[in-house]
Design a protein around this nucleic acid. Structure first.
Lengths: 237, 237
DNA sequence: TCTACACAAATCGTATGCAATCTTTTTTGC
DNA sequence: GCAAAAAAGATTGCATACGATTTGTGTAGA
């Protein structure tokens, strides 16, 4: 069982229907920025693409709409979400509220095996940062999110874990839209510090480091309304 | 616009399809304990009851399943959720983590009109406590949850507000299953204290009061595994 | 040339039908 | 009488069909 499986096991263990599989693939595509914000996802197109009927495609899109990754308009269709600056702020405000607590919970339950998993995760992050190129960049963003999901999994609260999955996914969208530079190297070192705090059992430190880490990520965003997105939103509504 | 509309405006403003309306009615029924945990909700039954096709009923049940209020089993059907003691603990652990922060956020944004709405909400709670009888008891539980939802609405973060809607709804289920006595009077006075702290702008106090309030609610639960629910679960699985 | 209206194309919302799967009952063999 | 197998019944999973709504296009009139 690799790390990715471990992270998603809570939601995917009982993968019953094909709709969930399609949702997962679409979510990965959105998080990896292969699907740009605003892209139209028509039921028929998704259906033929995955070789299922519109019924199943519709269910998958509905799930993504619940997660906030897709916006649906009646009789118009589904579109990859285009979060406004205000939504972006709310995403990070939520993370600032939840993640320090998750860090404390994880710190209280972390095992040696978990630490090993974190180390493997950090190595993977490092590899993607070392590589350069668009594909590595995508993998890097995803790996960075996976760190936070792994932490949530270790914390052992399935409800908070699901909240975090949603927040991390939406953060990817926000960073795609408003991200300024590569926060990657900085983020990676901060991840390493957090794992260090977990390993030494300093829960308060882990919590504080996490809070600063989120602040740093958000500080890298440029949430001023720009002509491009503003115009698009004006046209969409 | 009454208080209930205000609370749910974030999710219901653009009520597009009938599935959402059905979901809301079913959710109210579950939260009000008119539908007991474990009750079977077959697609056909729900469809005929609301006079829609199975397609629409299915969508409504899927939504409730995302919220954790309904559990679906492949080729078996949907059932009102029967949260385990562990799930119950996770619900309250999540609330302990999130709600003090919500209280602080709400405290920083609360207006005079909000305070008036809180007062009206408290009055309504008081009325239901004064009345006795099963219907009043139901309304009382619902009103108590609405207080927390109103607070989340005032906090002004749509994402956290949705998380709270889910947590409050699941809490109702947990209290229905594991609640020991009437925490109501105690809870009502604590709500009043929190509103007092909000009114005087003491955000730290509001946050601490909220944390204690959640602890008190949880302390009233009897989370030891009992024969009844265990047997039911054994029969369901 | 520009505007307004009408028609055509595309897409969604919903109902219904069939196949697959699970549960229950009946039948059969011991 | 009891256990096991088989058939019947019920319910979901999924595909498809049709109507409704929206969007885009072309044409007629000013």
């Amino acid at each position: 069982m690799n790390i990715a499986d471990q992270i998603y096991s809570a939601t995917d263990s009982a993968t019953q229907d094909r709709a969930q599989a399609i949702r997962d693939q679409l979510r990965d595509a959105i998080v990896d920025r292969r699907l740009a914000p605003g892209t139209k996802l028509s039921e028929g197109e998704v259906g033929t693409l995955f070789d299922v009927s519109r019924t199943v495609a519709r269910a998958a899109l509905q799930m993504l709409s619940f997660e906030g990754l897709v916006r649906t308009e009646r009789n118009r269709g589904a579109f990859v979400a285009n979060p406004s600056p205000e939504e972006a702020r709310q995403v990070f405000a939520s993370r600032r509220l939840i993640e320090p607590g998750i860090a404390i919970a994880a710190c209280g339950r972390v095992t040696a095996a978990d630490i090993a998993a974190f180390k493997a995760q950090l190595d993977e992050e490092g590899r993607f940062i070392a590589e350069r190129g668009p594909n590595a960049r995508r993998s890097e963003i995803k790996a960075s999110g996976d760190f936070h999901l792994l932490l949530a999994a270790v914390a052992g609260n399935a409800i908070l874990q699901r909240f975090m999955e949603e927040l991390v996914a939406r953060s990817s969208l926000v960073i795609a839209l408003y991200g300024r530079s590569g926060i990657s190297a900085c983020g990676h070192s901060e991840h390493t510090e957090i794992v260090g705090a977990l390993g030494s059992g300093d829960c308060g430190l882990a919590s504080r480091l996490m809070l600063h880490h989120i602040d740093h990520i958000e500080a890298d965003l440029d949430l001023r309304v720009r002509a491009g997105p503003a115009l698009r939103e004006a046209l969409n509504f």
